[in-house]
Design a protein around this nucleic acid. Structure first.
Lengths: 307, 307
DNA sequence: GACATCCATGTAGTAACGCTACACACTCCG
DNA sequence: CGGAGTGTGTAGCGTTACTACATGGATGTC
């Protein structure tokens, strides 16, 4: 019934390896193994099974790990209570973002957070192509992720999801394009166009498929880039058109790139913060989250003024 | 953030004295004092204040004690999870009851529980006059208590309340009484009668007041007894009439005492189980509770057959 | 098929932690 | 002013959980 041991079990459920748990909790594998053994003896039934050279959790182990999360949440909430009594959102908060959100939100957010004494955010970025957003919550307090409208693939894993903003995905065109004077664009308008796309697996791909279906004509994707700046450069060069997040596109192409809203297709992505539920309870984390929300609202309002 | 220490704080919130907490947790007062001191240092703000020769909790202390309950509940739920995986409702459960409920429910319930291997219930009875039901939850896993319809004075203290049954309170008459042939009785019928009442403070008192109000005439209470058997003996002797719980009256006065339902007044008491929320999570406790509920239903059904 | 590698898990020894026992300071009450 | 009731310090001891190192399997490679 020891909390520390339950915590280890929970880590094991996420990291799938005693060695990894040991590394994450700054212990030796031996210590982890011993504690889990004690827990198992207390429980009176096997919690792990050997599988190859590693091990996996039994049903009971998984169930117990789930309740371990509840314990961790309650405990984190207790911490938050006394933090609030001290009015003290102090400590370090680690954050990963995908590049575009980092560019859009973090400069303003970090500046706001600097005003809170004792609160430190450590930010990093990770290529969304190479990383599994939910898995990153094991390593970072806050994970900025995106998903398409309606679809929230992270709910199932018991993670806390806080929506920050929904960002429309517009069509980026060179300023001298035949459609550049339109106030919006439909799937039928872009039949025959060449597209600069994102790598396979990116959510943008799904929207291109929607456009194909609505227009009834196949789409030609000439190039695939992960970096938005590269895509914009190609569009400006007249090599194709592309889906561009409305709030994120670079101001370094003023007058040479225009964005037009897309009608008839659910062309927007939702930017959310992903957290392990216990970490989400920390006052420091909640403070950072609040700053991110207001920053997101600020960005959104700014773009509403200049349509 | 240690759970043991939070637990001590929670005990302190309920027992209001370090010495008492020490006694309850089988420790020396010194140990308790030291651990609370550590917790206070961790929290960074005072959790207790000296008050006379004892001490009381600060606002922060009380808030933290509340979250400590949440932690305890989560932890107890984790225990329950693995008990359920073992399918093992094992252990000891302590129970206090007021006499009439004990007489009505416990013999049957204990017999059912004897069929569950490894499950032990330790039952005691306590005079409701001398004891504060909610306070008893500190000492016992399950506290059988009663309250009048609608009124649930235990909710506020963060206790878990499980209703077991509602028992009508009838008017007990000697078999040769002028009202003994009626099928029910109204407040107007009993104007001028002499009553055998319960001691001041018992909930029955309130019902007598209701009768007074409805009838518009003052009630004469000749004697006051806590023990139902004594009351019944007085009624049989023709010394007065009394409120008698329908399912609990003794079969040792067959034919000499009759019960008549009371109309026009909310004459019933609710019998409930009172528990600290964490204890309520234990599988063993929940099993006993289930037995009590079915036993209560059985008793109620039995009386429905012989009106 | 032998070898290196990566796992989990045992076996000492050590450091930290929480307990008891006892002494002390303080408040209330007769 | 004692005596009984509080909560709190200090010294010493036992338990516990860690590290360091060694062992036994399973996997994949030359």
């Amino acid at each position: 019934m020891d909390v520390q041991r339950l915590e280890l079990l929970r880590e094991l459920a996420e990291r799938h390896s005693i060695t990894e748990v040991a590394r994450a909790t700054h212990r030796t594998p031996s210590a982890v193994s011993q504690q889990l053994k004690v827990l198992e003896r207390e429980a009176g039934l096997p919690l792990t099974e050997r599988s190859g050279r590693g091990l996996i959790l039994t049903d009971a182990g998984r169930a117990l790990a789930r309740s371990a999360t509840d314990v961790a949440v309650a405990l984190a909430r207790a911490r938050a209570v006394w933090d609030e009594f001290r009015n003290d959102a102090t400590g370090e908060v680690s954050l990963v973002t995908f590049p575009t959100a980092g560019e859009m939100l973090l400069p303003g957010a970090v500046r706001s957070i600097a005003a809170v004494p004792g609160l430190i955010v450590n930010c990093t970025d990770k290529d969304p192509e190479l990383s599994d957003f939910p898995a990153l919550t094991a390593e970072y307090d806050i994970v900025l992720a995106y998903s398409l409208r309606g679809q929230l693939p992270w709910g199932g894993r018991g993670l806390t999801v806080v929506p920050l903003m929904t960002e429309p995905l517009d069509v980026g065109l060179p300023a001298d394009h035949r459609l550049a004077s339109r106030s919006w664009i439909t799937p039928a308008d872009v039949i025959g166009e060449t597209w600069i796309g994102a790598p396979t697996g990116y959510p943008f791909e799904r929207i291109l498929h929607q456009i194909e279906q609505k227009a009834g004509s196949q789409i030609t994707v000439a190039q695939q880039f992960a970096d938005l700046r590269v895509i914009e450069a190609f569009v400006v060069a007249g090599l194709g058109i592309a889906l561009v997040p409305r709030y994120t596109w670079g101001g370094d192409q003023p007058g040479r790139l225009v964005l037009k809203p897309l009608r008839g297709v659910d062309a927007e992505r939702q930017i959310v913060a992903l957290m392990r539920p216990d970490r989400a309870e920390r006052l420091a984390v909640r403070t950072v989250l609040e700053v991110l929300r207001t920053e997101a609202a600020r960005v959104q309002a700014k773009h509403a003024l200049i349509p």
